[in-house]
Nucleic acid binder design. Structure first.
Lengths: 230, 230
DNA sequence: TTTACTTATAGTCAAAATGACCATATATTA
DNA sequence: TAATATATGGTCATTTTGACTATAAGTAAA
């Protein structure tokens, strides 16, 4: 058994990325269309092989960038999926990664083994190959759980946003309705938001105040955790 | 490339188990002494190789049983650790598993590549090989987080226990002191515990009432989550 | 120029939960 | 019988919550 080259792949181990985006009050997931291989022409989660020389985290970032053009985001490891029959031709164990992004910030540039890359509404996802549907379900549940225990939104929303926009994000993730007044009160007590002293423009109703996250408080709450029930 | 036999190992992928136990108010971790290999004679987390035929979850259970004798417990996947240099002789990515058990329920029977298996107090752990120390730290932090968002104790405590015993468990995990009276009140409101209508025996002070978990409520809270701040 | 409509923002109030205590009960051991 | 452990229950001011109500500030239609 010779020592493998640093850039040769470990073909029993792959990465799959679950990238959630938010736009117009709706939660999306990023998929790529396979240009080659056994699922050519099908939409699937962006994924690929880990090489001998790189860490698992960097593999995830490299693969996501090469397939979709998205880079410089925080990818969090979600879970490893390893049923023996999850992949048809051989035994492949996959490590799923997870990220939340603001769709407006990234233009999708399909590349490598992807002929296309697109956002799909979380409720209008095409049939996915392998066990990607269960990975997606697992990830969505993870997000629902996450939203209740730490602040989210920093990566999903534009820098300046209204309180209603933030509330819509929570509602899209939790798939529920929240009371506007109580939502505001809760947020204001958390001291998580800073006023921009600016108003919305070009809306056909009373303009709402714009807020931004207080990075300091945000990171603190991320460490300590919050109990967000509303 | 021939098709690998179902029982041949994927030698780039291992499992490591983080088994937490609770006894006399102290939190322990289970380690095994390696009988062979590059870290012979050293204490480390119980771990081994995944084979082609089995799921990752079953590999974790098989490996734990063969090294320590412990079986029939709920092993939860924790995280995959994959720095390129984490293992000295070759590239190995490891999937860490996590469990909470009642030490009294299991007699440790070292086997396979383990010459010994023992509980170590979480604060008196010997120097661990590879990145096992960071896996342990990660797992302990995960436990601290977990304890605040879902009920724990079902697997860690004997069937019947006193409220003080449960409080000691929370204190050991959170590394803090809790108010006795407020702890009781919180627990009683959760409706998580059922009275056994029995008292402690052989204690040199007023005997405390014994409780057991209400499995129904416990599982429900596990799904829905709790906010446990005290 | 009203009037309707939309969203923003503030406030009320009873009920529940929290945190820091205090008080008493019931057991063993010196 | 006194000292001591731990068990168990209660108080109370403060904070948080959930469900509402009310008013403000814009645009668009009548």
């Amino acid at each position: 058994m010779g020592k493998p080259r640093a850039d040769s792949i470990i073909d029993a181990l792959s990465i799959d990325c679950l990238i959630f985006g938010f736009k117009n009050g709706r939660l999306d997931i990023l998929l790529v269309k396979h240009a080659t291989g056994i699922s050519k022409g099908k939409w699937a989660l962006p994924g690929g092989w880990i090489t001998y020389g790189e860490s698992v985290d960097s593999a995830a970032n490299r693969i996501l960038k090469s397939l979709t053009g998205i880079s410089n985001i925080y990818l969090e490891q979600l879970k490893t999926f390893g049923e023996p029959d999850r992949y048809p031709t051989k035994r492949v164990i996959t490590i799923a990664y997870f990220a939340l992004v603001n769709e407006e910030h990234y233009s999708l540039i399909p590349g490598f083994t992807a002929s296309d890359a697109q956002w799909f509404n979380i409720h209008e996802v095409p049939k996915l190959p392998y066990d990607h549907a269960s990975i997606l379900t697992y990830g969505f549940n993870h997000l629902k759980h996450k939203v209740r225990h730490e602040p989210i939104g920093f990566n999903l929303l534009p820098e300046k946003f209204t309180l209603l926009r933030l509330q819509e994000l929570y509602e899209a993730i939790l798939e529920t309705q929240l009371d506007k007044s109580n939502f505001r009160r809760k947020l204001s007590k958390m001291k998580l938001l800073k006023e921009c002293h600016e108003k919305q423009k070009d809306v056909s109703h009373r303009a709402a105040a714009l807020f931004r996250f207080d990075k300091q408080v945000y990171d603190q709450l991320k460490r300590d955790g919050i109990a967000f029930e509303l």
